[in-house]
């Protein structure tokens, strides 16, 4: 099982997916609105689930999914660090982030052993949408934020699937927190807050932030709770205080934009 099988299944169920993704690719930054939500019908999710036999396969799929996202991040930072896009003053931050992504790749490959998916070929311009990704620092930062926030949401979305395996669940949580640290520091380098307000991606593809404006947690509307006597918690704070998950079906079309 590897990621391309997953892509293949997605396309079989939704033959127009490739087309829609291509169309969106031609759109400019920030206009990939609701891609993830729109591109993959619910039926796809059902079929994906049906095509896997047992829990062991399911865990392998989750790990390969994580590995592929880590491959993407690792290659992204390795390429950037080998270029001149990152100003000297910010190199220490991205050297550290790049190191972690490399460690995550090695770790997940080790865990998967013979079952590890091969590294895809990446195109970080997304067929020309982000042409200046490795020459314009602001474009690079925006994609970095997009990848890190996606990583946080993607790992969070898989926690439940790893509940049967304490060690793997803990590893995933440990990586998840590191990705969140990355996201926070990159957002700050962009002049953004370290946290996600409503579903504002600051000019990055909107599909990555779908659902981040949720204020209802476990049946509790956070905005009805008291901040202090006489004041309720604001909607901004309610959305910032809880990061939302993304499903595999939501993340894959976004990842696919960057895979040749």
């Amino acid at each position: 099982m590897n990621l391309f099988d997953i892509f293949g299944k997605l396309e079989k169920v939704d033959p127009e997916l490739g087309e829609r993704v291509s169309f969106n690719r031609r759109k400019m930054f920030g206009q990939l609105t609701s891609l993830a939500a729109a591109a993959v019908p619910v039926a796809t999710a059902t079929l994906l689930k049906k095509s896997y036999a047992g829990p062991k396969d399911a865990i392998t799929d989750v790990l390969n999914y994580a590995l592929t996202l880590e491959y993407l991040e690792n290659k992204f930072y390795a390429t950037a660090l080998a270029s001149t896009v990152i100003p000297a003053a910010d190199k220490a931050v991205f050297t550290q982030i790049g190191k972690h992504e490399q460690q995550h790749v090695a770790f997940l490959k080790g865990a998967l052993a013979a079952n590890a998916a091969a590294e895809p070929t990446f195109d970080f311009t997304a067929k020309g949408t982000f042409k200046d990704v490795f020459t314009n620092y602001q474009t690079f930062l925006a994609l970095s934020q997009a990848f890190e926030d996606t990583g946080v949401r993607a790992y969070k979305g898989q926690a439940g699937a790893l509940m049967g395996d304490d060690a793997l669940l803990t590893y995933a949580l440990q990586i998840h927190a590191v990705e969140a640290r990355h996201a926070s520091v990159v957002r700050r380098l962009r002049g953004q807050k370290g946290w996600i307000t409503n579903n504002d991606g600051g000019g990055t593809p909107a599909a990555i932030y779908a659902g981040e404006d949720n204020v209802s947690q476990g049946g509790v509307d956070i905005t009805t709770l008291e901040l202090m006597a006489g004041t309720k918690i604001s909607k901004n704070a309610a959305t910032e205080a809880f990061d939302e998950p993304l499903s595999m079906e939501q993340v894959l079309p976004v990842a696919k934009l960057f895979i040749v």
Binding site: V152, K156, A159, G160, M163, L173, H176, A177, V178, E179, A180, R181, H182, A183, S184, V185, R188, G194, W195, Q217, G218, E240, A241, F242, D243, E244, P245
Partner: peptide
Amino acid sequence: NKDYLLLAGKIVSVEARHAAAIRD
């Protein structure tokens, strides 16, 4: 409970964001 695990996940990444911002 799977729902609680997800809720913990929703909170912990925000704590990690805080930690990185404070350290920054």
